[in-house]
């Protein structure tokens, strides 16, 4: 009985989501058309029409051979290294952030000692540290990774600590009563119950990683990347390419966030439904 209620709720939820998506795309489509019409009538060199930007994106990056999934060599030299650095930086942030966050959340003492320091470190705008990273690390991948990690780690770390601190006491009692091993306690109670918070942090970290990925590529001494291509186009006053880079970043951010939401939805099905049923 309760199952059919849950499924019906999911259907209703599904339809709501579809309508919401339709509305969102409608507004976007109208916006793009208005932009196209506006830029065509204005004919400003600084604001090329969207059709021209898309054509440039296609020409620059997506007109490659089928064997390379239509990616051009420019795409392989710039987009892939950018995404690779971002993925690596984000992965390192997740591993270190979750591990430290769990320690911090489960140890009262560690939390009391380190929380003020972390809160302070967190509010430092990461781009201001990039010049220091340039001095500390060699210019290039090392510095870029350091910049991404230093910005992306905080939301994950602090959210994990917060989640690990608020594991239900009754569930911890259960783990004591039934004498769960330390590993079982960690992997079947603490981490799953922290996961919703970890994902909340991850969403923030993802957008920060994207920002720092581009930002670190805008600096001199960079050899490739989307940011590098932007600066390069700027030096040639190639406005369509600059716009193409900006639109590409927007699309990448949107897609990556979508992928993350999909993963979250799969991994946290219990969270959404059990909480939905409560309310």
């Amino acid at each position: 009985m309760s199952i059919s209620v849950a499924t019906r709720g999911q259907f209703r939820h599904g339809r709501r989501v579809l309508t919401a998506i339709a509305h969102r795309w409608l507004v976007l489509a109208v916006g793009v058309i208005a932009w196209e019409v506006g830029t065509r009538t204005a004919t400003s060199a600084y604001f090329p029409p969207p059709s021209k930007i898309v054509a440039r994106m296609h020409h620059l990056w997506f007109s490659g051979p089928i064997a390379h999934v239509f990616l051009t060599s420019a795409a392989e030299q710039n987009i892939l290294p950018s995404l690779g650095r971002m993925a690596l930086g984000l992965a390192a942030s997740i591993v270190v952030g979750v591990a430290l966050g769990l320690v911090l959340g489960r140890s009262e003492r560690a939390f009391e000692y380190l929380d003020p320091v972390l809160q302070f470190a967190r509010v430092i705008p990461p781009p201001t540290l990039v010049p220091i990273f340039i001095v500390l690390f060699s210019v290039g991948t090392q510095m870029q990774l350091a910049s991404i990690i230093f910005s992306a780690i905080w939301p994950i770390l602090l959210n994990t600590a917060d989640g690990a601190r608020s594991v239900d006491r009754l569930q911890m009692d259960i783990s004591r009563v039934f004498k769960l091993s330390a590993a079982d306690r960690l992997f079947t109670i603490i981490i799953p119950s922290t996961l919703p918070k970890i994902f909340a942090g991850l969403r923030l970290s993802l957008s920060l990683a994207l920002i720092l990925m581009v930002f670190s590529e805008l600096l001199p001494g960079t050899a490739n990347g989307i940011g590098f291509e932007l600066v390069d186009a700027q030096s040639r006053s190639d406005l369509p390419t600059m716009w193409a880079g900006i639109v590409l970043l927007g699309i990448l951010g949107y897609l990556l966030n979508g992928v993350l939401l999909l993963v979250e939805r799969r991994m946290l099905a219990w969270h959404r439904t059990s909480h939905g049923a409560d309310s």
Binding site: L170, Q171, I174, S193, S274
Partner: peptide
């Protein structure tokens, strides 16, 4: 325990 909803693991 009395509070079954919290004592069972929802995941």
């Amino acid at each position: 325990f009395q509070d079954y909803s919290r004592s069972l693991l929802p995941w």
